[in-house]
């Protein structure tokens, strides 16, 4: 582990690369700004990122490189082939990159499936459930539903013998149609199912947070999901992680979102950020654009931070200490995510967010109750 501006930093566990900020659909809960900008990351930015990481001394034996933040399949396949070649060549002998991406699924065809197989890319698809749940929020720019086209993409993956992870955003509509949601996922049988309670972030004011009694209703939903997972054998990401933490990890666990340079985010324009990937693209009067530096700057170093980012790191560290001191769930959480603290409280110091209550505390209680029940 290195030290930067008085903070322990790294190792880099995940690199989030924004191939493009453009998205071909217009989900009602999206937090990303500028989803109409069609710029694709120049290959010299990819090269500069690879060189900066290779010379940082902060890489372990493996690192996840995740194409995200925008719809990655709107960028050309040839871009990814060349970017992967640059990254593999530059990082050879230092670390093994593991490529993954998160897609809305609409553009998956046989050519993309061949690419995923050839490049060993782990694919995640964003699916919220049956049409009356998924299409309530995941809309085209012409205000039409997207499920039927997304499922055609999933069918192409299956026809090619490729598995996929699924992430669902859980909204009030999901909670109204829990049985239909779980039946849909039981038929789909993804490699793993991730549950993201709809968040207040960026331009989105969560409809979940504005619905009545959302905390107890979300907890009841999670208990149903845990029973469903045991019955169907479909792994639920949040429950699996929490079980591992409870049964076998050294406590307190570490939240990579509040550890400097554990996650490194690179934007299409070469700006580099860390902590929660969502921070990239947001601005604040006190911190500027949450960017630690620009890869196009000849003197760029991962461990030389702009003043605004150093201030951000100080405040995130204070926020983590606040969590450690005052929250009973810190041992299984590692401290609230900076993006949620900023979106809900306009501060990185301070503690509990509504995301904490749903995304961590409720999960912890369901898993602890389940394992205590298994003891009896």
């Amino acid at each position: 582990m290195s030290e930067v501006s008085g903070h322990p930093a790294g190792p880099v566990r995940q690199i989030v690369l924004q191939a493009t900020g453009f998205c071909n659909i217009d989900c009602r809960y999206c937090y990303l700004p500028d989803r109409l900008t069609r710029t694709v990351m120049p290959l010299d930015v990819v090269s500069a990122a690879a060189r900066a990481l290779a010379s940082s001394g902060m890489l372990d034996d493996e690192v996840e490189i995740r194409w995200h933040a925008g719809e990655p399949l709107t960028a050309p396949r040839d871009f990814y082939a060349r970017a992967h070649e640059i990254l593999r060549r530059t990082l050879a002998g230092i670390t093994v990159p593991r490529f993954s991406l998160q897609t809305n699924g609409l553009l998956i065809d046989d050519a993309w499936c061949s690419f995923f197989r050839r490049e060993d890319v782990r694919v995640g698809v964003s699916l919220d459930g049956p049409a009356h749940v998924h299409d309530a929020y995941r809309r085209t720019r012409n205000d039409r539903g997207t499920l039927s086209r997304a499922m055609r993409g999933v069918e192409r993956l299956r026809a090619a013998g490729l598995d996929c992870d699924v992430i669902s955003v859980i909204t009030p509509v999901t909670l109204l149609h829990q049985e239909a949601y779980l039946d849909f996922m039981a038929r789909l049988r993804p490699r793993s199912l991730g549950l993201n309670p709809e968040e207040t972030e960026g331009g989105n004011s969560s409809t979940l947070h504005r619905s009545s009694g959302f905390e107890p209703r979300y907890r009841a939903f999670l208990r149903s999901v845990a029973a469903w997972s045991a019955r169907t054998g479909v792994a639920v990401r949040e429950l699996e992680r929490m079980r591992e933490h409870v049964l076998s990890h050294r406590l307190p666990v570490r939240n990579t979102q509040n550890e400097p340079l554990s996650i490194v985010t690179v934007g299409t324009d070469g700006g580099v950020s860390s902590f929660s990937p969502e921070l990239f693209g947001w601005r604040s009067p006190d911190h500027g654009d949450f960017v630690l530096g620009d890869l196009r700057d000849p003197g760029f170093r991962l461990d030389a931070w702009r003043p605004g980012f150093a201030r951000l790191a100080d405040e995130v560290a204070q926020g983590r200490r606040d969590c450690a001191r005052s929250c009973g769930y810190f041992a299984l959480c590692g401290g609230g995510a900076p993006a949620n603290k900023w979106a809900e409280h306009q501060a990185f110091t301070g503690t509990r967010t509504r995301f904490c209550a749903l995304g961590v505390m409720a999960v912890a209680d369901v898993v602890l109750d389940e394992l205590e029940g298994a003891r009896r």
């Binding site: 992680r241 076998s248 205590e372």
Partner: peptide
């Protein structure tokens, strides 16, 4: 925030974990 258990008691999360375990760093995001 406190954790309420099986027993209806308020117990610390650490206590609940220890009790489960008695019957590797964890990274998460």
């Amino acid at each position: 925030p406190v954790s309420v258990s099986d027993t209806g008691r308020v117990r610390s999360v650490e206590d609940r974990v220890q009790r489960i375990r008695t019957t590797h760093p964890g990274y998460t995001a």
